[in-house]
């Protein structure tokens, strides 16, 4: 067995907090892009959120977008360069709150790009406020007594929401909270990129990820939170796959 840094990632220390899932997702994307041999064809988009600096880590073209707008930017990029590989990397605030419209419409148009949606159930970059995906009862800086089902509503389930859209080719929810999950996540992300290469249309992989700092948990406890709490609400699995008839 061999395990080393993919070429699509620079050899740099990241700014992420200890135990943050973004690093794992970066590594997986880097590996997938290496394995598909598409590094020089890839154009990534950076979101506003903790992953805004991802261009410091990825060794390919990247455009940093306004908060929530990566799907609009990627739509234009991919339409203009249909032979390139375009992906958005978005947090839950970016994709499922401020950028919900862009995400849904890009998906519904069946834009042929790939979205990696990192769901950490919180606003990481701004210091731990409630996200649309925050669990009921979960404490955040703006739901200090826990998210209230009546006041704030239930968490938004993106895969379930998108699964009714005809334009969508592939939806899968995975996690990076165990090694086994990470391997599954890689398979899903690879398929999402392969779909784009094959011109199948919009693919989104939702990745349940840890944010120990803003959850105010240790990294080990954060892994437990994903496995024991998040997976209960956000059930991992394939939500749509047009390959499976």
């Amino acid at each position: 067995m061999k395990f080393k840094k993919p070429e699509s990632l620079y050899d740099r220390n990241t700014h992420y907090c200890p135990g943050c899932g973004h690093g794992i997702v970066h590594r997986i994307i880097g590996e997938v892009i290496d394995e598909l041999g598409i590094r020089e064809e890839t154009i990534g988009t950076a979101p506003v959120g903790c992953a805004v600096l991802l261009y410091d880590y990825f060794n390919f073209d990247v455009i940093e977008c306004a908060h929530g707008r990566p799907p609009a930017v990627a739509t234009a990029m991919k339409r203009i360069h249909p032979d390139k590989i375009v992906f958005t990397y978005q947090g839950d605030g970016d994709l499922a709150a401020i950028g919900t419209a862009e995400m849904i419409h890009a998906a519904n148009r069946g834009e042929n790009f790939t979205t990696i949606f990192v769901n950490n159930a919180i606003y990481g970059m701004t210091g731990g406020q409630m996200a649309p995906t925050t669990l009921v009862g979960q404490r955040t800086t703006t739901t200090q007594k826990g998210r209230d089902l009546i006041k704030q509503g239930p968490p938004l389930k993106v895969c379930e929401l998108l699964s009714s859209l005809d334009g969508v080719a592939y939806l899968e929810r995975v996690a990076v909270s165990t090694a086994k999950d990470s391997m599954k996540a890689k398979k899903a992300i690879k398929k999402a990129f392969q779909n784009q290469i094959d011109g199948k249309g919009y693919s989104l992989v939702e990745v349940l990820s840890m944010c120990p700092t803003d959850w105010k948990l240790s990294p080990a406890q954060a892994v437990g939170f994903v496995n024991d709490e998040m997976k209960k609400v956000f059930k991992p699995g394939v939500y749509k796959d047009t390959d499976v008839k």
């Binding site: 455009i63 930017v73 990627a74 234009a76 990029m77 203009i80 862009e102």
Partner: peptide
Amino acid sequence: GIFIQAESELAAINMIFGASAAGVRC
């Protein structure tokens, strides 16, 4: 050329952002 009826002016201007970075007159 490419014409897109965007879902909002927010989306439209950000499509322009992407299109311009992609190198075309937009």
